[in-house]
């Protein structure tokens, strides 16, 4: 059985929950009280992940940390069609890896500003927001040109990839970090498309698309 160490309000844990939803994978959830309990820094959890970070999975004894790593693993181990992960051609695989890295930058900017605003972390929120805006500009431009070429997703190909999953949460939660997505219309349209992928799941602050 697959176990997810999860915190509901975490954008990074949401990446894994999205993946599990798209793959329809049965799993157990262990709730880790990130705030205010700081259970992720408690000894019991540090024994699982010495970095004290969520998410972590335990797939029948195979323990894996880091959202990008988990997405890569799940796509290799549990996606029979190979459509989400690195099963495509070299160009697609390269782009997926590129946008997975970009997603980590979102965690360090929008995610950080959100930690400041919503979880009272002491950090330079304005610098984090400015960094987030810069990344959103780049993502919006990429998606706008993808639309011009009838491409719907971050990486080339007709099927969304783990790169879309990785970039979705913190852009969809931008409002929590006081960033207005009205300036990034192509990102908003990509969100709508992503929300209509069968198996999509929501989290607090992320609304479903219908119709």
């Amino acid at each position: 059985m697959l176990t997810l160490y999860d915190y509901e309000l975490s954008g990074s844990c949401y990446k894994v929950r999205l993946m599990l939803g798209f793959l329809g994978l049965a799993h157990e959830t262990r709730h880790v009280d990130f705030h205010p309990g700081r259970e992720h820094k408690a000894d019991a959890f540090l024994a699982i992940n010495p970095l004290g970070q969520l998410p972590v999975i335990d797939d029948d004894g195979y323990v894996l940390r880091d959202a990008n790593a988990i997405l890569t693993y799940l796509a290799s181990a549990h996606d029979p069609d190979g459509s989400w992960g690195f099963g495509g051609d070299a160009v697609r695989n390269g782009r997926i890896a590129e946008w997975l890295g970009f997603a980590s930058d979102f965690t360090g900017t929008i995610g950080a500003a959100r930690l400041h605003d919503a979880f009272f972390y002491d950090l330079d929120a304005e610098a984090a927001r400015a960094g987030g805006r810069r990344l959103l500009c780049i993502l919006d431009e990429h998606l706008w040109f993808q639309e011009r070429q009838a491409a719907q997703w971050l990486a080339p190909g007709d099927h969304p990839s783990i790169a879309d999953i990785a970039c979705f949460p913190y852009t969809a939660l931008a409002q929590d970090a006081d960033l207005d997505l009205a300036d990034y219309p192509a990102i908003r349209r990509w969100h709508d498309r992503f929300k209509r992928v069968p198996g999509f799941t929501v989290m607090p602050g992320v609304f479903p698309a219908r119709g």
Binding site: E147, D180, L181, A182, P185, R188, R189, D192, A209, G211
Partner: peptide, 21 residues
Amino acid sequence: IAASTDLVPRHVFAGSIWGQE
């Protein structure tokens, strides 16, 4: 307030004029 191509089917676009959303 938008390009025609911004208004794709079944989407709600966020526009604004002089602070009026």
